[in-house]
Design a binder for these strands. Structure first.
Lengths: 215, 215
DNA sequence: ATTTTCAGTGCACGGCTGTGCACTGAGCAC
DNA sequence: GTGCTCAGTGCACAGCCGTGCACTGAAAAT
């Protein structure tokens, strides 16, 4: 029972505000509850119970758990895009792109653990529609990264395809690192080790990329 | 109903053989059924129904779905280790390690699609024990690869840690490629594109690694 | 002031779930 | 041949599931 909207709880909320509040409560409950068993093992009744609402009230907000899942994908990728924005406008006191990027990544994973865990889980285990939605979003991130890379010194002569391939490689490494950070479960020592390893790996990849096409 | 052992089906099987047959049928059914919804959304009754056996008979073979999951992890990594063996003893007509390795990977993913899909799914979505079992097995693969890399020319001066980091990078890339191959769903065009991309990426990584520590 | 809207209620239904218990009967050791 | 073992049966139970339907009552629209 984490019921959020009660009659006259805050002075007086408009009806749509109260509805939105319940909707958010449902999303939050689903995100938390799906952490064990995943989205497809999540029941509408569990969610309703956790929100403090009768099961049938669920339908006022979502058609099904799958529908809810798609909304969660949107939410999660808002977090993720916020991270990408932070990477791009990273603290300029960090001269090294890799250092600052890895730092931003670890901070975001820690702050938005549930969203990242959701993506890692449902990417392969979720309902078909959810899986494809996630895949699509990741593809968009890849394209964005490829565009960023094109503005980097040393990639002027690269083909569109090679840029895409490199972007795919980097995104893969970042996803893998994010997953490892999740497994480290917030223990500082583990996180630091993962971050250090990731920095080394990204540097290796950078060296490889810089010597590409010139060899 | 895919019931495997029936009374006097094959001339006469010993009792333990018939039991083993049912066990294998249960594992196969679970592997197939868990492809939608995942292991934790899989019910003992579904499995029993699919095998053509009464629900309670399940307990003659496994304590729970989770227990079954651990057995499936073992099975899946038998497939995976077979692949690693094939990589090591790859067709020597392929001069390039990368070409032959990627070829072996694609062939194994195609032949053992369900096992690879199982690992990709349950790695993050499965019951806690299954997740840790998978993580442990992947770690073992990483260590094996690190040992292999140590025997490679050009890595003589590498530290134990750097070898481990490189192994982690490669395993991550391979996992990512395997997952992409699964998503390609057996369409040849998609698979070939993924394979080509993977070869390029591994080559980039190789170049990076060869220039490591010497820069 | 009256009417409409609609988020949330309460109840009911049939279907699926895991699991306990007593059983059967073929395969095997003796 | 006799008796034990034990994989698979059959039935029962209580609990959870999604969802249909008629409802209430406060907020919004008129």
């Amino acid at each position: 029972m984490i019921r959020v909207p009660t009659p006259d709880d805050p002075p007086t909320l408009t009806r749509v505000e109260r509805k939105e509040q319940t909707r958010q409560a449902i999303l939050a409950a689903a995100l938390a509850l799906s952490s064990e068993g995943g989205l497809s093992a999540l029941s509408l009744r569990q969610v309703a119970r956790h929100v403090g609402v009768v099961p049938t009230a669920f339908y006022r907000h979502f058609d099904s758990i799958e529908d809810l899942g798609l909304a969660l994908v949107d939410d999660a990728f808002v977090s993720l895009r916020a991270m990408l924005r932070d990477v791009r406008t990273a603290d300029p006191t960090f001269a090294d792109v890799i250092d600052s990027s890895v730092r931003v990544l670890t901070e975001h994973v820690r702050a938005q653990r549930e969203h990242f865990a959701f993506i890692a889980r449902e990417r392969f285990a979720g309902p078909a529609e959810v899986r494809t939605a996630i895949r699509h979003e990741i593809e968009l991130c890849e394209r964005e990264l490829a565009a960023d890379l094109a503005r980097f010194p040393g990639t002027e002569s690269w083909s569109r395809e090679d840029l895409q391939v490199l972007a795919n490689l980097i995104v893969g490494a970042v996803v893998s690192t994010a997953e490892d950070l999740l497994v480290a479960e917030g223990r500082r020592a583990g996180e630091d080790a993962v971050a250090a390893r990731s920095r080394t790996q990204l540097r290796m990849m950078l060296i490889g990329a810089l010597n590409w096409r010139s060899s």
